[in-house]
Structure formats: C-alpha cells, structure tokens
Computed example of a mutant assay.
Amino acid sequence: MEAWAVVVAGGIGTRFGARKQYESLAGRPVLAWSLDQARRCCTGVVLVVPADDIGRREWPADLVVAGGASRSASVRAGLEAVPASAGIIAVHDAARPLARDSIWHAALDAVRRGADAAIPTVQVTDTIKQIQPDGSLLTLDRSRLVAVQTPQAFRASVLRQAHASGRDATDDAALVEAIGGTVVRVDGAPDNLKVTDPGDLAVAATLLGEGTLAPIDRR
C-alpha cells in the first residue's frame, strides 16, 4: 500500500523565538533531518512551510505547499497535495528531527495490518495533576497516561474524512477518534523529542554528537 508523508513545518516559532524548523542541528536545518526520515520511509513527501517561505529554498520533497493559521489547517493543506493513489498518509512534525526509522515503520505497518491510525507513545514518568475549575489539583493515575509523538500514520480515507470537519486539534489522531476511528499505539522513544525551545535544540545536538541515535541517517 503506497504511503506518503506530510511533514508539517508551518509554524512561525512563537515559543522558540524564531522559526525553529530552519535552526541548525549538527550542521543541518532541523527540517532537513525530518525530511530525510520521511523520504526513506515513504513513497512521497509533501512539505508544509509558512506561506512567506514558499520558493525561498529548495527542499528534498515532492511538493512544497503553504501552511495555514493552525497546525490542523497546515495538515489539511498538505493533505490536498497528497495524490489519491496514497493508501496511507503519515503526518510528522518537522520539529521532531530524531524520530528513528523504526518508529516510522511501526506506525505504517500497524495501518497496513488494519488500524485506522497508529501513533507512537511513551509512558509518562512524571506525576501529572489536573487543575480543577476551583483551582484545586487532582492527581491522575500516571500508569494510564502516555505522551504522544509523531510520526502518526493513518488510512488515507479516514484521515481525509477526519479533517473534512475543518476542526482543529493538537494532533490528527484526536480528529480520527472524534469520528470513531480505531487508533492503536506503537512504541515511541524518549529521545524522539520535540524541539520547542533552544534548550531542546541543545539536547538534540548532544544526542547526535554522542552517537546514541545510530539508526538515524547522519548525512
């Protein structure tokens, strides 16, 4: 089953203070690492960047499209560019440059086996408390909590249906859940970090420099 990837790099870096997808990581833009992963694991790649960055630089993607005002809007822009021949669509945040190929393949294979969606997760290790309406705190059972990563893989028809509502969500699996789709978990990795602030970029550089991410192509 043909699989395409939508690599989402449409953010303007409000929290980071700059467009983090273009920041240097081990001598290459953060975005370049994520594109390499998608290219190795999928038949084709659609890259979503801020509208004012279209045409400023060439990237190793089959198509480059302009993002929208939200993450979900950017994913929808990418979906429109994915050919109808794709049976599986993976969505990956460019800000996760250390995703191992094994995570990509685990998610894609789970969909090939019949799931509507497959998401990489890691067990929560911190104690999590929920703020109640009155300001008090409720301690949640962390043994039942997981943190969700990307790449996330989807049956193409289901993902398109989920996005047809035009709703926003923090991840695409939430939209699939909302229409009753089957979402399964695959193993993520603690070092599949999301670059959110400059400190995360420093950690990613250290992981690469220590050679602890051997499965990643370090071209």
Rank of each mutant, 00 (worst) to 15 (best):
A66M: 11
G67Q: 06
G68Y: 04
G68Q: 03
G68A: 06
A69R: 11
A69M: 05
A69Y: 04
A69G: 13
S70R: 13
S70N: 12
S70W: 04
S70M: 07
A73F: 01
A73M: 11
R76G: 06
A77C: 11
G78E: 02
G78S: 12
G78P: 05
E80P: 02
S85F: 08
G87V: 07
G87A: 07
A90Q: 04
V91H: 02
H92R: 13
H92Q: 06
D93G: 15
D93Q: 12
A95R: 10
R96Q: 14
R96F: 07
R96D: 11
L98M: 08
L98Y: 02
A99S: 15
A99W: 00
D101G: 15
D101P: 15
S102C: 04
S102N: 06
I103R: 00
I103M: 12
I103D: 05
W104V: 02
A106D: 04
A106H: 09
A107Q: 04
D109H: 08
D109M: 12
D109T: 15
A110R: 03
A110I: 07
A110N: 06
A110Q: 09
A110L: 04
V111A: 12
V111D: 09
R112V: 09
R112Y: 10
R112Q: 12
R112W: 10
R112M: 08
R113L: 08
G114A: 14
G114N: 11
A115H: 00
D116N: 11
A117T: 06
A117I: 07
A118S: 05
A118C: 05
I119P: 01
P120M: 10
P120V: 03
P120K: 05
T121N: 07
V122Q: 04
Q123R: 11
Q123A: 14
T125P: 00
T125C: 08
D126V: 00
T127N: 09
T127P: 02
I128S: 02
I128F: 03
K129T: 00
K129A: 01
K129W: 00
K129D: 02
Q130A: 14
Q130F: 13
Q132I: 00
P133D: 11
P133H: 05
P133T: 09
D134M: 10
D134Q: 06
S136Q: 15
S136Y: 03
S136R: 14
L137C: 05
L138H: 12
L140S: 02
D141N: 13
R142G: 01
S143N: 10
R144G: 14
R144E: 03
L145M: 09
V146R: 15
A147V: 06
A147D: 10
V148N: 02
Q149A: 14
Q149K: 02
Q149H: 15
T150Y: 03
P151C: 13
P151S: 10
Q152G: 15
Q152E: 14
A153S: 12
F154S: 05
F154G: 07
F154I: 01
R155W: 02
A156E: 00
A156L: 01
S157H: 08
S157P: 02
S157N: 14
V158A: 05
